[in-house]
């Protein structure tokens, strides 16, 4: 456990609850394995002693704000998670005044599973470009840390280099395994439609067969709905019980968005997403 950060978070949470600024604080506590972390909602002062922060705090707690729209909540966010706050603000799913953001200047999270904790930083942390959250009300700080330089999308480039047939084969193999539990959707802070297209009957976009064709429809549409919106927390991939490398899809689009529009989702809450706007610099195909 990172004592320095944990203490700052606990103090902050205590202050917020004591003053009645927030109804609850969404943070992390120790999981039932005694080793990793899990989300935790502190509503009472006593609960704040359970709050922790360390390198196993992978969850993007911003998702939970969608369940707590009517109440002012505090939420602990890592720099990467904070992008999702801007996304939800931009899409008017949350109100800024209803959230108190306890930012954490994180040093990266490691690969974990229940009762397992590796020493390896998660891949996304190795090329993380955010030293601190893009939006916060309080920042739990620690010594600034090294950020590894390097190619942001080595795996995507590798995938792009493959012929289309072998890419198709790769994804058929992956999607073939999908059991359509929709955990990837449920954990995603960008997925909040009251009725997901995948569950609509009229028209029926995706059939209920848990089989390659339908799975592929689900996965590709999910990815497209996140184009320019995915903030890269990679919770979907972490949750997937069938180990489908979803980040390869999400980050491919992230890369395209960067290259085409110099846009990264969540950096601000103001900017119009590229798909909702049209700029003159974009190719018109005819005289302006």
């Amino acid at each position: 456990m990172n004592l320095e950060l944990t203490q700052q978070i606990r103090d902050q949470a205590r202050g917020l609850l004591k003053s009645g600024t927030v109804k609850g604080v969404i943070g992390y506590e120790r999981a039932s394995d005694g080793l990793t972390a899990r989300p935790f909602f502190a509503y009472e002062l006593t609960g704040t002693d359970q709050l922790i922060f360390d390198e196993t705090c992978s969850h993007n707690l911003v998702k939970y704000l969608l369940d707590k729209k009517g109440e002012k909540m505090a939420v602990v966010v890592k720099p990467c998670d904070s992008l999702a706050i801007n996304l939800l603000l931009n899409e008017e799913q949350i109100k800024r005044e209803m959230v108190f953001i306890i930012g954490v200047s994180c040093t990266g999270v490691v690969e974990t599973a229940w009762n397992q904790k590796s020493q390896t930083l998660q891949a996304r942390c190795q090329t993380c470009r955010l030293p601190k959250p893009v939006v916060y009300d309080f920042l739990a700080e620690q010594e600034p840390i090294r950020r590894l330089e390097g190619e942001l999308y080595p795996d995507i480039l590798e995938m792009e280099a493959k012929p289309i047939a072998s890419r198709r084969e790769f994804w058929h193999e992956q999607f073939g395994r999908c059991i359509r539990c929709y955990a990837c959707r449920q954990i995603c802070p960008g997925c909040y439609c009251p009725e997901c297209f995948a569950e609509q009957l009229s028209p029926l976009w995706v059939g209920i067969r848990i089989a390659l064709g339908e799975n592929e429809l689900w996965q590709t549409n999910r990815t497209l709905h996140l184009a320019g919106r995915c903030t890269g927390c990679n919770e979907c991939e972490r949750a997937c019980p069938m180990d489908i490398p979803l980040s390869l899809l999400n980050r491919k689009l992230e890369k395209e968005m960067e290259e085409l529009f110099s846009f990264r989702a969540g950096l601000t809450s103001e900017e119009q997403p590229p798909f909702a706007t049209f700029r003159k610099e974009e190719k018109l195909g005819f005289e302006e």
């Binding site: 899409e91 009251p194 609509q200 997403p273």
Partner: peptide
């Protein structure tokens, strides 16, 4: 409205300012 997620992307893209929250 049962399907609307309230993201109001529609409002952003509407060229006729015909959409409101």
């Amino acid at each position: 409205i049962s399907r609307c997620s309230g993201c109001l992307l529609c409002r952003q893209v509407c060229p006729f300012t015909a959409i409101e929250a």
